[in-house]
Every structure is written in C-alpha cells, then in structure tokens.
Write a protein that binds this DNA or RNA. Sequence first.
DNA 1: TATGAATGAGCGTTCATTCAT
DNA 2: AATGAATGAACGCTCATTCAT
Lengths: 198, 198, 198, 198
Amino acid sequence: MGGTMDGTRKRRRGNTRQRIQDVALELFAEQGYEKTSLREIAECLDVTKAALYYHFKTKEEILVSIFEDLSRPIEELIEWGRQQPHSLETKQEIIRRYSEALTGAAPLFRFMQENQATIRELRIGEMFKTRMLGLRDILMDPDADLVDQVRCVSALFTMHAGMHVLQDVESDPEEKRKAVLEVATDLITQAHRGSGGG
Amino acid sequence: MGGTMDGTRKRRRGNTRQRIQDVALELFAEQGYEKTSLREIAECLDVTKAALYYHFKTKEEILVSIFEDLSRPIEELIEWGRQQPHSLETKQEIIRRYSEALTGAAPLFRFMQENQATIRELRIGEMFKTRMLGLRDILMDPDADLVDQVRCVSALFTMHAGMHVLQDVESDPEEKRKAVLEVATDLITQAHRGSGGG
Amino acid sequence: MGGTMDGTRKRRRGNTRQRIQDVALELFAEQGYEKTSLREIAECLDVTKAALYYHFKTKEEILVSIFEDLSRPIEELIEWGRQQPHSLETKQEIIRRYSEALTGAAPLFRFMQENQATIRELRIGEMFKTRMLGLRDILMDPDADLVDQVRCVSALFTMHAGMHVLQDVESDPEEKRKAVLEVATDLITQAHRGSGGG
Amino acid sequence: MGGTMDGTRKRRRGNTRQRIQDVALELFAEQGYEKTSLREIAECLDVTKAALYYHFKTKEEILVSIFEDLSRPIEELIEWGRQQPHSLETKQEIIRRYSEALTGAAPLFRFMQENQATIRELRIGEMFKTRMLGLRDILMDPDADLVDQVRCVSALFTMHAGMHVLQDVESDPEEKRKAVLEVATDLITQAHRGSGGG
DNA sequence: TATGAATGAGCGTTCATTCAT
DNA sequence: AATGAATGAACGCTCATTCAT
C-alpha cells in the first residue's frame, strides 16, 4: 500500500533505523514525547508498529538512541573542556562551541527544553543532568558568589531556550545564534570576573 | 479566609473544587500533565473520578482554572505596567514585582516551564504566550538591537527557570530569589541602556 | 447490540462482578489461563474489556478472586483439621470432607490441575502450595516412611485429578466421587498404619 | 557420541536441530509452553528466530518432535505390553518399566503434567491420550469395579506426578522413584485382585 | 454533591510466522 | 544452514469521559 513499483520501497532497506530516528525526533519535538505514539511514527514511515520493535526495544530506547547519537559532539566538548585550564578564554571557547553544537542538534534540544517533566523520569533525564553538571563544573567556580552562579546557569539556559523562543522575531537564524551567544558570553564573563578578579 | 458572612458565600462550604485544584497542581508539577491521570487525582482526594467532573468539565479545564486563579496577580501586574512610562525604573519595578509573583505561584510556573510541549496545544498555551508578549512589550523596545532583545528574553527565562534549577544549590530560597532577581535586573538594565542610551 | 428492550440489560447491574468470575472460570478451565483473553471474557458478557477493569485490577486478580471465593471452604477445612488430634479418624474425616469441597468447586480444581505451569508464577501458586502443605501436615507424619509419604501425596493427587480424568467412564458423578474417595481413604489409612502401627 | 562412520551420518554435523529440542524442552518444562517464546529459545541458542523455522515448521512441531523422540520407549513398552497376557506379573512388569521410562524423560513428563490445558488443544494432546488409553487397556479390566478402575488411574497419576511433587522432600531421586513405584505397584495389584480374584 | 458502572479509543508491547537473500 | 527485516494479529492495560441515580 503505497510505493509499489517505483523503487521507494526497495531503497529503504538498510536505513530504516535511521529513518525511525529522524521521524521520531521530528514528531517528539513537534508534539512532545507522550503525545507521539508509535502508531504515528510507524504510519509516517509506512511500516507497522512491530517493525519499530525490530530496531528498538522500547519507545524510550528510540529516544535514548537519538539522544546518544546527536549529543555526542557535546559530550566530546565537555570532555575536552575538562582538560583545559579553567581560564576565561577556555570558558568563552566552550560557550562558543556549545552554541554551535546546539545548533547542530536543534530539534533535539528544543525537545529537551520543552519536555522536561517527561524527561525527568526517563533515562535521558539522568544522562542530560550529568552532562549539564559537567558543563557547570567547567564554567563555574563552586565557591563563587550566588549571583555569579545564577549568571552561569542563566547563560546555559539562554542558549538552550534562546533559539526556539525567538521564533517570532524575524532576522536569520545565524544572526540570532550570534546574539544569543553574545549574551551568554557576557554572562559567563561577568561571572568569571566576579569570582576570579574580585 | 474562613468567610462566614462576607460576600464569598458561594465558595464557602464544599471546598472540594479548591482541593481538586491543589492536588492537581501538585501532581501536575511533580509528574507532568500527561502522566497525571484523573484517577490519581481522585484517589488522592478520596473521591471518585466522576466527582471531578461535577466540578470541572474536562481535565484541561482543571488546569485552566488553576492557571487563571494563580496567575491573576501577574495579569494585574502587566495591566499596571502597560500604563506606566516605559522607563528603566518601571522596568526594574516590573521585574521586581514579577519575581515576587512567580514565587507566589512557584509550582504553577515550574509546571509551565517543564511542560511546554504539552501546554502548547492546550488553551493555556495561548494564554501564557499572550501574557509573555505583554510583558515583553513593556520590557523591550521593538526596534532594539537583537542582542538586547535576547537580554530581555533571557531575563524572563532566568526568572522562570532560576528557582527550580538551583535546587541542588544550598542557601535559602529567598536568597536565591534575590540572586536571580539581580541577574535579571542586570540584563534588563543593560538592554535598556543599549537601545535607549546608544 | 443485544438485549435492548427485554430487561436483560437492566437486570445485570450489580452482579457484573460475579458474572465476570463465572465466565472467566468457565473459560479458564476450558482453554487455560493464557489462552483465555480478556477480550473473550468481555465478549461473552457483552461488555467491553474496560468494564472488566472496573471490577478487577488485573487479569490475575480475576483469577485470585475466584480462587479465594471458591476455595474458602477448603481453607476452613484445613483450619478445622489443624485443631483435631492427628488420629486416623480425623484423617479419614478430612479426606471425606475434602472430597466434598473439591466437588463443590470442581471447575476451579480442574483448572488448577491443568494449569500448573502457569499457576506456578502467579500469586495463587503460592497460595495453593501453602494450602497443600497445610493439608499434608495434617495427613502425614513427617517422619513417616518414604513410601507412606508417597501414599499421602498420591491420595491428594487422586482426588484432584480423579474426577476429570474419568470423564470418559460412564456412571454418574456421585458414584465416581465415592470411588475416588474410597481409594484415597485406603491410601491414607495404609499410610497411617505404616508409620503409626508399625 | 562422536558417530564418525556409523549409520548416524545424517544426524552428525549440524546438531542444531537437537540443540533446539534440548533448549526448548528445558524452557517448556521450566516456564510452560505458552510462556516460552521462540525468541527466547533462539536467544538461548544464539541463533535467530528464523533459524528455528529452518528446522521446524512451527512452534508446535518443535514440541511434537520432542515428544515423539522422547516417548518412543514408552510407545515400545506399550506395544510390548499389548502382546503379553494380561496377568498380574505382566502388569507389574509394565509398571516397573514405565517408571524407568518416565525417569528417562523426566522433563518431558513434568511438562506434560503441568501443561495439560495447553496440550489438550495441541497434536500431542491426542497422541498422549492415545498412549494412556493403550496403557490403561493393558493394566485394567474394562469390566472392573469402578473403585479398581480408579486405582489404576491413580497408579498412573502417581507415577506421573510423583517425582516432581516430592521435590521438597529430601532423599535421593532413585529412592523416591522406588517409593513411587511401590505405591503404584500396590495399587495395580489391588486392582487386579479386586476384579480378577473377586 | 457526589457515586457506580461503563465505554471507546488508544497505548506500548509481544508473538508466531514469512520470505528474500 | 541461517539471517535481516518485516508483518498482522492480538494482548493486557489505561485513559478521559458519560450518565443514570
């Protein structure tokens, strides 16, 4: 039913797993995790629900696999950051690269941002939290002034939320990204001065 | 409270409606809207599901009613703000009062923050968005520099998310609130200077 | 769909729970627990699957409730037996009463007999085992000769299985029951003599 | 058994078929037929489900093949018994050999015992029943007293169930087997006397 | 002001089976 | 001799909602 002779059926062998991830992320980001049913995903792909279970053990596993695949650059970034001196320059560089990494996986992070309640009780909740704490440890002096701690958190939040929230503002995405990055860098810089330079 | 003879006659005896709202908000905030079933709410209150339908037409209506009741101070704040001159002092005052209002309805705003995907397709999604745009119009010059626009949005986000995110940080809530407020005020102030004084 | 105006619909209010148990037991006994789906039970009763869940929390709970209701006489019998002297007369009386109790809940015990593998991992598995050990402790001297122990177990098994297995033998059920009882009594008596009388 | 050059050439290399039967029986006996999925069997063997279908046409066929292979000694025993005079000595000899045969295929008979409801609607249900009737015809005079008929059936049941049921009793298996055999022989002997000797 | 009883739709998941390779 | 990929049917279960009482 659908695509019987035009090769669309044949050609999709071997990449079904990837296609499931793509469609799933799109729907998860658009409608949320809970409101997206496996039936819906399967229909979009013109396969049966059971086919999804050939490739993934559970619904949650689909999400986990997406998260692992797409957030790998971020994990590597954190790993890299951990080994640098905690200087202002490092922090600024981290923020800059983080902004790029986020842009590369925008739908995933939009999803994370908008489904926090759901995620909290899923495996990726813990994964994400761990990553964030890793980032925080790099960007922030644990003995810093409370206000400066807030600035750091605020910088991260600004980057996470910034893009999707400015959707109704015109001007192209790259410009927006740079604006968001500038604000975040400011916050990080101020926080660093506050605790470091006195 | 205990209005025995005052004008609040209607809401006097039979506080079930209120209790439903209280429990619902607690559960919504804790587990998310979708994962909280009416059965669960009813069980917490030791009534039947059908009883909920005596007081509210739908599940969504419970949420709407909570939102309307708890976010009234914010609506009034915006109304007030609209009539003030768009000076820096006004903006700072708005932010200050907003911080207080948020604290007064913390679970609701934690819920809003963590259930954005869900809320988007609910009535309160539109309501909330309208409120936020109202706030933005007060805090922000529409012709402002993109970076300053981001600062404004960032200030709001910082306040919305700030409290729940700093949960693992020690120090008492009121101190945290003040720290968050300071960062937000900074951002608003910078944004104002940028577009106004530049 | 079925019985719109003839009162069959109205009359069944209030006894649905019982009707579920009746139909479920019939089907469980006929086809086995696993092969009997809730859909099937519901269809027999002309209600929806969801209706079953109003009355019982899970499929297993339906079975447990049947077991508890129908095996109560047996529990009481064991309770009574525990307080008697462990004389031959008591044992024979127990066996006699047990035979009657089994007949009163024949479909349930046919089910238990034929679904042991299934039952083993269900709650009633443990319940049943406990009951049986209770019975055994009354009928059997723990220090008895191994052969006499087998006789006791054999007596119980004979009663459990006897009735259903003789289905293709003609002659009326009550006669069969008495024949089975006689064999069981013989076994118990021999066992008692063996260990007691030397 | 390293049959390098003897007549068992066919079954030599590629013992997968055998391994499937072994694992399947183990799982069927442990968890029941319905609760054991082909996926599970395949995983145990570290092959795919499809591989099972290379060796057997259906799930049921796996079971049938196990039954046929393992119960062949019993079929032969019955065949032998049919040609003997129906004397007491023959009956006792049958019972004795049957006990040995059961021990040689204990897991299969434990399975048969515990999955009667399932088996009834499978091909081996009929097969098993036929065998049992064959045995009964040898052990039992069709005109015998009802009580003696019960004794015969009871003897068979005792042997089928005896071993697995005494699992919590200590003492070694061979001793148990002998005890069970003794009880069964007693029953058969009594039955023979009853109908034969008047 | 509530309850008891039920429904219809849907969910995530599992199963035995098939078939081209 | 076996795999990779998929299917169709069914399953147990939960949900928001309804309505007579």
